[in-house]
């Protein structure tokens, strides 16, 4: 088939990066950054998730734009849920 076959080297590289990311998350959590601890932790998690999606789930190599549309719309809908309801929680007077 015309499917893209990734090299073993790439898979191992991504795997090591993900493991390093995990260690990094734990290490950074111990450094006092105030609210930025959460920002950093979620940023690392997002980078890790993106790597999994792009390389392990082959989204980088797919010719199908639709896959990306599906992922992005699901994330947009999650953003709608969080943003509009937090608009309520953040502005309550009680």
């Amino acid at each position: 088939m015309s499917e893209h076959v990734s090299s073993l080297k790439l898979y191992i590289g991504i795997w090591i990066t993900l493991l390093i990311g995990t260690v990094l998350t734990v290490v950074v959590a111990k450094i006092p950054l105030g609210p930025f601890n959460a920002v950093v932790a979620l940023s690392i998690a997002t980078i890790k998730a993106t790597l999994v999606v792009l390389f392990f789930m082959h989204v980088k190599y797919t010719h199908e734009k639709l896959t990306r549309v599906v992922i992005i719309s699901a994330l947009c809908w999650l953003a709608i849920l969080l943003a509009l309801s937090m608009a309520d929680y953040a502005t309550r007077l009680w």
Binding site: T25, N37, V52
Partner: peptide, 22 residues
């Protein structure tokens, strides 16, 4: 399976690592 992995990637910092610097 990868998706389930991704969920855990988020659950780990959100549940285990809140305010660890204190």
């Amino acid at each position: 399976w990868h998706f389930v992995d991704i969920i855990w990637i988020y659950l780990f910092p959100l549940l285990y690592l809140i305010d660890r610097s204190q």
